[in-house]
Every structure is written in structure tokens, then in C-alpha cells.
Design a protein around this nucleic acid. Structure first.
Lengths: 118, 118
DNA sequence: CCCATTGTACGAGAACCCTCGTAGTTTGAC
DNA sequence: GTCAAACTACGAGGGTTCTCGTACAATGGG
């Protein structure tokens, strides 16, 4: 079994490039938990396992948020062993909506500074 | 009665500058009808009456969307005669989240071009 | 083969959101 | 004062979302 088939045991539907909708992206980013996930992904600049995130919700809920992010086109996911890796779809988002993701990330950082204390 | 008191017959609560939350702004912008309103407001660069917008929903629904925009801090509203005028809170938004609004507007324009035909 | 790890599926409850219709309020014009 | 215009308030219906708990599936290690 090749590495490719090995990682495709479970299906992970993603929207294609042209199917990504701004409204869906904004909605995905408008949830505090998901915005937090996206910020951590942007900070690390690499794919992270779901278990990396220590969110104050159960695992089922975490799964739900990752699915919303994936189905809106914000992140890309794949299985690697028992872990599910997630990474930002920076390339696609930047091509579709230049500056949008960075604008949101800067805004989020700024707000965090302002609220959580600089 | 002065002009100021004349226009303050009805209450229009706005969040203060420091109360505006990124999540609320993103959520407000994630609805197609509201994004459309915001785009028109940005195009005209001045305050517009609700009746200016010809949205494919009833007036009650329109009122609802304008309230969501106002309560999230995206627009500012005031009464002028029987009309309710709405304008973008560009100054506050740009100060809080530099580049965010422009990023969203550019993304929306781009998507409209892509979908509705250039 | 068995097991621990990691994440999924399903269902359910509570909350929220978008939409509408109807009835009402405020304002300015006559 | 009366009337039309513009918008609001309220309530309701239908859909979606967020959250959870429990039970289940896939993978890799010993």
C-alpha cells in the first residue's frame, strides 16, 4: 500500500478552489473557537494534529469546528496515521481574496492584545 | 426643539469604540444580504436611507439586518425626519482593525466579478 | 492479536438566526 | 388635525448552529 492510499482510508471532502465562498469563510471565522484554531495554525505555519489544540470543549465539538473550517475552505485536512492533520489553505485563500486572511489575523491579534492584555 | 433633539426621538444603541468585537463584525458580514448592504454603503461613501436599498426581503427583515450591522459596530445610524440614515463606521473599524474592512470589500468585489460575471 | 490513541457518527437539547406578517409609532407635509 | 411615508415592535415558524454524551472505527505499537 502506498503512502497515498494509506492516508485515504476516510473521506475528507473539501470545496474546490472555485467553490470557496466569502460568506462561508467569514462565517467560519466568526466563531471564537474557530478563530482561535485558525490563529494557532497561522502562528505555527505547518500542519497540526487536532489533538494539538487544547480547546475548552469536548472532542466531538472540536471535530465539528474543524469540519466547518474545512467545508468552508479555510483549512485543508488529511489523515496521517491515527492523527488528522490540519493546515491553513493560505495559497487558495490568498489567490481568491488577497489580503483577507492576513487582515483578519492582524485584527484578531490586535483584539487579543487589547482584551487579554498587551 | 433643536436639530439634535429632533433627531433623537427614537433610541439607536450603538456599541462604543472599545466594545466592537471582531467576531461580531465577521458574523455581521457573513450574511449575503448584509454584505450587499455594506458594499453599497462603501460605494456611495455617504449615509443612505434604508429605503434606498431594494432588497429581496420585506421591510421587517431589512430592519433586522440593519440592526445586526449597527449592533455589531459596522454601521452608524441616525434618524433624519422619517428616514433612518445609515453609514459605515469606517473610522472606527479602520482604527480597530486596519485593513480588515477594505480586505473584505475587495474580496466581495472580486467574488462578485467571478460569479456574476465580470 | 490486543490495546491505547485519535478521531468519527449519531442523536439530542438549547440557543440562535432569518424570514415573514400584522399592528403600531414617529415624522413631515398639507 | 389629518394623512402618507418610513420604519419599528412583536411574535411566530422553520432552519441552522453549538454543545454534549455515548458508542464506534481506523491506525500503529508491543
Amino acid at each position: 500500500m502506498t503512502a497515498a492510499t494509506k492516508s485515504s482510508g476516510r473521506a475528507l471532502p473539501h470545496p474546490e478552489f472555485g467553490e470557496i465562498r466569502l460568506e462561508a469563510v467569514l462565517h467560519a471565522l466568526s466563531d471564537p473557537m474557530r478563530l482561535r484554531i485558525v490563529r494557532e495554525l497561522a502562528l505555527c505555519e505547518r500542519e497540526l494534529a487536532c489533538s494539538y489544540f487544547e480547546l475548552p470543549v469536548t472532542k466531538s465539538t472540536t471535530t465539528h469546528h474543524f469540519r466547518v473550517l474545512r467545508e468552508s475552505g479555510v483549512i485543508r485536512q488529511c489523515y496521517r496515521g491515527t492523527a488528522k492533520m490540519s493546515g491553513l489553505r493560505r495559497d487558495d485563500l490568498d489567490a481568491l481574496f488577497p489580503g483577507l486572511l492576513d487582515g483578519v489575523l492582524r485584527a484578531a491579534a490586535r483584539q487579543a492584545e487589547r482584551l487579554d492584555g498587551a
